[in-house]
Design a protein around this nucleic acid. Sequence first.
DNA 1: GTAGTTATTGCAAAAACTTGCAATAAGGAT
DNA 2: ATCCTTATTGCAAGTTTTTGCAATAACTAC
Lengths: 140, 140
Amino acid sequence: MSCGSEYATQLRSRGFRMTPQRMAILHVLHHAGTHLSPGEVYRRARRELTGITEPTVYRTLEFLVENGLVQPSHSGNGHFTYQIAGRDHHHIICRACGNEIEVDHSLLENFYQILEKASGFRSINSHLTFLGVCPSCGSS
Amino acid sequence: MSCGSEYATQLRSRGFRMTPQRMAILHVLHHAGTHLSPGEVYRRARRELTGITEPTVYRTLEFLVENGLVQPSHSGNGHFTYQIAGRDHHHIICRACGNEIEVDHSLLENFYQILEKASGFRSINSHLTFLGVCPSCGSS
DNA sequence: GTAGTTATTGCAAAAACTTGCAATAAGGAT
DNA sequence: ATCCTTATTGCAAGTTTTTGCAATAACTAC
């Protein structure tokens, strides 16, 4: 049992259960190294666990997000993609070529504080996706 | 013809056409005062223009976004909503009660500059949706 | 280990969204 | 006013995402 047991403990401590389906999905995301669409998660999870269904994948992803094990982010076209929660980061997608880079959260920390002060909201912690023009596309 | 003709000119100057369908959708968004889901836009636009179809609504919204007449934003659950382009702003949604406020873009301007400098990307201009805990929910 | 509780899944059907293509009609040219 | 070009729409069928509910199985307590 490689990494699953930590996740299991985390869920159980909140009164939830670890199931083969959740294991499979976490395994897929853990080894993907990048964010995946629900459909792609489904296709890969099926290889780990024959018989898993699509509704389960959707529900599980949402569930794992709510419990902080998975990070959602918006892909350029407005759909969610998912990746294992880990180092806190954001994305910038190039409007021209679609290429994408990560931005470490530390860069936003200051700004989040300003935003909290200005808005009165607390614990702001969204994953953000920016659109811009990347260096190679912008050298007109 | 109240406000439609400005939009028409804007589109024509780019080689596009103004159609009853686009008028209806722009009219709906113009008078909504808030952002609407594609489904809601469809339902309201149908009252303006019997016979308009759902695919048209989806395609038109995307088209209007590309041409800067409409602003997309992510609702809390990860779907797109749309509103007429105007004052540049962002949203913060309360994770607890779902309540939502607008944040003027001026507050982010500085941060966008920092982000551009750090990333090498240019013309970053995404509409952002933050999640946090609003003042009334946070007074524990 | 066994039994009980209830979180979780699968199934099936619905709703939301997308795509390709032929038919239509907006706007420019005559 | 009429014709022409081609942007745009509607239709129909596909794919993706959601939902309700009965059946299952994970964990707890014994």
